[in-house]
Every structure is written in structure tokens, then in C-alpha cells.
């Protein structure tokens, strides 16, 4: 090994170590700065009250509306997505198990939909609102977020369901079950924990996304509907 090669080897190893610790350091900085700035303003009032006059300029009140709104929005959307998503994931893995090409086309479509930015869903949801003559509401927000988290939920359930052994399915057939019984009674039970993970994952995505609900859920400082969009709006307003 020549000297130049040795130097190259050392140099790139150093770069790799730097890159790895850069990522870890950034994570530490993010967590530290959020806690450092945020902890002192967390109080009981903030969590249990709605904003009062001049809240955004540092006066009394809290963000209860936004907290409850986020929870309501994300739970509603997760429930709806679950009702649509579970059957699709089961259908792919039980009914279409012999149609490999069909499965791969549908998975491909889901991957495409997964990649669409949430602002596009927001715009689409908003145009639907106008089309149907609705107002911004919790329901509209829920529908938009449902569309947004649907591919995430289906794909992660699909990953789990596809690991269910074929033998299990064959055993159930030989005992006389039909396809929907196999889907809802055997597959769901076999991969129960994975389905819960998928639901929690989608809930996390739904509660944290602001762009999709910015125009569809609306804002209010009262205890009705608010969303992470409210947080963003408060910040941009101060700027």
C-alpha cells in the first residue's frame, strides 16, 4: 500500500466518523434547544386554558384548543384511515395472493401516493371543500389528513401481513374457512402487534403534519377545532 493510499484511507474514515457524529450532534442540539426554550414556558395554565386576549403577545391563556384539536383531528383521521386501510392491506395479502403482478402494481401506486407532498393534499382538500360548498371544519381536516396517512398505513400493514406464513392460510382453508374469514380472523390476529404499530405510526404522521390541515381545518381560539397549523400560524404571525 502506497503512502497516498494510506492517507486516502485515513481521510475518508475521518470524514465518515465526522458525518456520523454530525447527525448525532444535530439531534442533540435540536432536543436541547427545544427543551431549553420550551421548558420555561410550560405551565399548568398553558396546558389547560384556551388563549385569552393578546395571547400571542405573551399574555395569559394557554393552548388547550390546539392540543385537543390536534388530538381530535389525528384520532378521527387515523380511525377513518384504519377503516379503509385495513381491508385494502388484507385484500392484497389474502385475495390477491396469487396475482403477483396486480399486487406489485398496487404497491407501486401506493408508493407513488406516499411520495406526494402534504401541501398537495391540502390544496386538493381545499378545492373539494369549495366544490361541495363546505366550510373549513374538523371534518374537512380529518378527510384531508385521512387521504394523507392512508398510504403510510396501508404500506406498513402490508409489510407485516406479507410475513404471515402461507401454511397458516392453507390450514385455515382446509378447515373450511372462506377468504374473508381468513383475512379478518386469522391475518389480523396473527399480525396484531404490527397493525397496532402501523396505526400508531400513522397517528404520529397525522398529528404532526401542518400543511395538509392549514386550509381545511380552519383556526379558532375557542375550544372547537385547531391543529398544528395553529402553531405555525402563531409563529408566522409573530415574525
Amino acid at each position: 500500500m502506497t503512502r497516498a493510499q494510506k492517507v486516502e484511507e485515513k481521510f475518508f474514515k475521518l470524514l465518515m466518523i465526522l458525518a456520523t457524529y454530525f447527525i448525532l450532534a444535530i439531534l442533540a442540539i435540536i432536543i436541547y434547544s427545544i427543551f431549553e426554550k420550551g421548558l420555561k414556558s410550560i405551565s399548568w395554565e398553558m396546558l389547560t386554558q384556551v388563549p385569552q386576549g393578546g395571547y400571542y403577545y405573551g399574555k395569559g391563556g394557554g393552548i388547550l384548543n390546539a392540543i385537543l384539536g390536534s388530538l381530535a383531528l389525528a384520532s378521527g383521521a387515523t380511525l377513518l384511515a384504519f377503516l379503509i386501510g385495513l381491508p385494502v392491506a388484507l385484500y392484497l395479502n389474502v385475495f390477491l395472493i396469487r396475482h403477483k403482478r396486480m399486487i406489485s402494481i398496487i404497491r407501486f401506486l401506493l408508493d407513488l401516493v406516499w411520495g406526494i407532498p402534504s401541501i398537495v393534499y391540502g390544496a386538493f382538500g381545499f378545492s373539494l371543500l369549495i366544490f361541495f360548498g363546505l366550510q373549513t371544519s374538523l371534518l374537512a381536516g380529518i378527510l384531508t389528513v385521512t387521504l394523507f396517512i392512508l398510504p403510510i398505513m396501508i404500506r406498513s400493514m402490508d409489510e407485516i401481513l406479507s410475513t404471515v406464513p402461507v401454511g397458516l392460510q392453507e390450514a385455515a382453508y382446509s378447515l373450511g374457512s372462506n377468504k374473508s374469514e381468513i383475512a379478518f380472523k386469522i391475518f389480523t390476529r396473527q399480525s396484531f402487534s404490527g397493525i397496532i404499530t402501523a396505526v400508531l405510526l400513522s397517528f404520529g404522521r397525522g398529528i404532526g403534519d401542518a400543511a395538509a390541515v392549514l386550509f381545511t381545518a380552519g383556526y379558532t381560539d375557542h375550544l372547537q377545532v385547531c391543529s398544528p397549523g395553529d402553531l405555525a400560524n402563531g409563529i408566522t404571525r409573530q415574525k
Binding site: L83, I84, G85, P87, V88, L90, Y91, L92, F95, I106, L109, L110, L112, V113, I116, L147, L150, P151, I154, S180, A183
Partner: peptide, 12 residues
């Protein structure tokens, strides 16, 4: 199941 699947496949 089929209705859900159609909905999802038509989404894009």
C-alpha cells in the same frame, strides 16, 4: 374491501 381498494387505487 374492493370499494376501499378502488378508492385507494384511484387516489393519485
Amino acid at each position: 374491501m374492493i370499494i376501499s381498494l378502488l378508492l385507494v387505487a384511484l387516489l393519485p
